[in-house]
Simulated assay, not measured.
Amino acid sequence: MNNDNPPPKIEFPCPDYPIKVLGEATERYREIVLSVMEIHAPDFDIEKITIRDSRNGTFQSVTVFITATGVDQLQAIFDDLKKLPETRMVL
């Protein structure tokens, strides 16, 4: 495998950029994820949000599509989502 090729670069602004968060399935978690998104990407499309519960209902994934404006914005979103005690993974 050739590792000389750099990963593809994102061109900003990048519409429909998905951010998926996996955490404990609580009503509070969903609301706090959306509040973080409103701080950093207030123009996200609320109609495109997908929420899925795990088979046993223990965990929940929340996917939000934003218009990514830059690396700093994405890093701030990831950092704030990772700080939530319920969060297990941010993709």
Score class of each variant (00 low, 15 high):
37 M>V: 00
61 S>Q: 01
42 P>G: 11
75 Q>Y: 10
57 G>M: 11
11 E>R: 13
76 A>G: 08
72 D>G: 10
58 T>K: 15
12 F>E: 07
76 A>P: 05
52 R>I: 12
26 T>K: 02
63 T>L: 09
43 D>R: 11
87 T>S: 10
64 V>D: 03
24 E>T: 10
86 E>L: 03
90 V>L: 02
13 P>A: 04
64 V>H: 04
42 P>R: 07
63 T>G: 08
43 D>H: 13
18 P>Y: 02
78 F>W: 05
26 T>W: 02
68 A>P: 04
75 Q>F: 04
11 E>V: 13
75 Q>W: 10
14 C>P: 01
47 E>V: 10
25 A>N: 14
22 L>A: 10
56 N>A: 14
66 I>A: 07
49 I>T: 06
91 L>S: 11
44 F>T: 02
58 T>Q: 14
89 M>G: 05
53 D>E: 15
83 K>G: 03
51 I>Q: 07
41 A>W: 05
70 G>Y: 00
81 L>N: 00
12 F>C: 04
53 D>Y: 14
66 I>D: 02
72 D>W: 11
22 L>F: 05
21 V>G: 04
53 D>L: 15
32 I>Q: 03
2 N>V: 03
14 C>L: 00
37 M>P: 02
74 L>M: 12
84 L>C: 03
91 L>T: 12
62 V>F: 02
19 I>D: 10
88 R>Y: 10
23 G>R: 09
36 V>C: 07
89 M>K: 11
69 T>K: 12
12 F>K: 07
24 E>C: 11
74 L>C: 10
85 P>N: 12
64 V>P: 08
15 P>G: 06
3 N>T: 13
7 P>V: 12
49 I>L: 00
74 L>I: 13
49 I>M: 01
36 V>Y: 00
48 K>V: 01
34 L>M: 01
58 T>F: 13
28 R>A: 13
36 V>M: 09
77 I>N: 03
63 T>Q: 12
86 E>F: 07
57 G>Y: 06
53 D>A: 14
52 R>K: 14
88 R>A: 06
80 D>S: 12
52 R>W: 12
28 R>P: 01
88 R>V: 12
3 N>A: 08
23 G>T: 04
27 E>I: 12
51 I>G: 01
88 R>G: 08
91 L>C: 00
85 P>E: 11
17 Y>E: 09
46 I>V: 08
56 N>H: 11
89 M>V: 14
9 K>E: 15
71 V>G: 13
45 D>M: 03
28 R>H: 09
8 P>R: 08
71 V>F: 15
28 R>W: 05
22 L>Q: 04
34 L>H: 09
32 I>E: 06
35 S>P: 08
68 A>L: 11
84 L>D: 00
50 T>S: 08
21 V>N: 03
50 T>K: 10
33 V>Q: 01
62 V>K: 05
71 V>M: 15
